[in-house]
Design a binder for these strands. Sequence first.
DNA 1: GAAATAAATGTTAAATTGACATTTAATGCA
DNA 2: TGCATTAAATGTCAATTTAACATTTATTTC
Lengths: 234, 234
Amino acid sequence: MTDISYPTKDIRLAVDCIIFGFSGSELSLLLIHRGFEPEKGLWSLMGGFVKDDEHLDESPRRVLKSLTGLDDIYLEQVHAFGDVGRDPGGRVVSLTYFALIRKETEDEVLLDEHDARWFPITDLPELIFDHQEMVKSALKQLILKTRIQPIGFNLLPEKFTLPELQSLYEAIYGRRLDDRNFRRRILSLGILEKLEEKEKSNSKKGAYLFRFDKTAYDALREDAAKMNVFLTLF
Amino acid sequence: MTDISYPTKDIRLAVDCIIFGFSGSELSLLLIHRGFEPEKGLWSLMGGFVKDDEHLDESPRRVLKSLTGLDDIYLEQVHAFGDVGRDPGGRVVSLTYFALIRKETEDEVLLDEHDARWFPITDLPELIFDHQEMVKSALKQLILKTRIQPIGFNLLPEKFTLPELQSLYEAIYGRRLDDRNFRRRILSLGILEKLEEKEKSNSKKGAYLFRFDKTAYDALREDAAKMNVFLTLF
DNA sequence: GAAATAAATGTTAAATTGACATTTAATGCA
DNA sequence: TGCATTAAATGTCAATTTAACATTTATTTC
C-alpha cells in the first residue's frame, strides 16, 4: 500500500457470518429474524461491526459467541462485500466468514433472544440486502474446501458413523454418493480411527463409531506438501 | 448484519495488489520500491485506499491502471488483512487482490515513475508489513484456482505454444510436469484451438500456436455443473 | 424364530495416470 | 548438399483408480 492520499473515514467495516450446521441428512443455516426496518420481517445473517481494537478474525468470534454461546468455532474468511449502496444505512463493507458448528451444542436461550432459526440450505427464506449472494459464495467455498481439507468434521460430533459422514458429504456436495466407494476411499486415507462402540439410534444393527485422527491427517498432508502434490479427500 | 451499535469510523480501507506476470519459464511479481519511511527502501505491493464512492472491485482496477496503464485485467479478491497494528500508520484493513497480466503489455514509463520492478516469485526481496503473507496466500489461491479454472491463460499472449503453457503450469505449481502426459491431458479437454501458425523463436522446428477456446470451456463447465461434479483441468 | 432394517462388504470392467525413449522438423554451418 | 543441432511432437504399457453394481450381516422387535 503506497498511495496515502485517500483516507476512507466514512466506510464502516462489518462482519457477517454464514453459520452452517448439520443434522439428520441436512445441511442448514442459522439465520436471524430481522425485527426492524428496513427489510423488517425478512431474515438475515448474523453480523456486527468490527471494533476499533479488535483483530479481524476476533470479530466473527465475538458475534458467534453472542449468538450461540460457543467458543472454538471453525471459521474461515470468505469474501469482502462492499459495493456502494449494498447497505441502505451508508457505506458498509462487510467481511463474510463461514462457521461450522456442531448442531445442538448451541445455546437455545441465546438463539431465542436473537429470534434465530435453522433453515435447510435447500430451502432458505428471503434474505436482506446481498446476504443471499454471501451464502452462495460461502457454500461454494465450503464445497471446494471440503474436497481438499477435512473440515467437515467440525459439523459432526466427535464420534460419528460412516453413514453420517457420507450423508454430510452428500449434503455439502448436493449429490448422492455410492456407499461402497465412499467407504473405500475415505478409509483408505487412514485418517479415521475406528472405535469399538456402535451407534444404534438409526438401525438395529448399529453402526461403528469413528473419530477423526488429526495426527494421521497431518502426516498425510505433510507428505503431499513435500511432493508439491494436491491432496484430495473425497 | 444486525448489530448496529459499533460504527468503526477509525478504520481505513485499502487494497493491495499481488500482480503476477509470466515470461520465459518464470512466474514473477510486480513490486514497488518504497521511497519513504517507515520501511523506506524495502519493496511493497502496489496499493491504495478505497474511495468513498467506488465499488470494491473498482479499486484495484484503478490502482492497476495507474501503475500499468492496463484495463481489462483478470482480478480476484483474495483476503482481508486487518489485524490491529499491521500498519504502523493506524488501523488499516487491506483487501488483497491478485492480478494476472500479460507481461510486456504494461506501460514501462508508468512503471519507472512508480519505481516498480518484476521479481521472480522464487526470489522475492524483503517486503514491508505483512505483504509477504499476502503474497503467500495469493499464490496459494492462484495454485488452487488454476487447477480448476482456466485462468492461467490471462498470463499468456492470446496465441501460445504447448511448451509455453506447460512452463506456465510448472511455474505456478512449482514442480516439473511430464510433457507427454501434460499434452495428453490438456488436449483431451478440448478447450484449446490449434492454429496453423508456428512460433519459432525457441526452436528450429517451431511449435504450433494454440488459442484458448472459451466456448468449448463453457460447454465443459456447464456439463460438470449439471452433474454437480468437480472439473479438474490439470 | 421370522420379519424388518440399516450396516457392512467385494468384484469387475473401464478409465486414468505415471513412467518412460524415439522420431520429426527445421536451421545453420561445414 | 548434407550433417549437426535443437526443441517439438508422438506412443505404449503397466499400475492405479474409479464407477457401477447386489448380497450378506447384525440386531431388534413382534
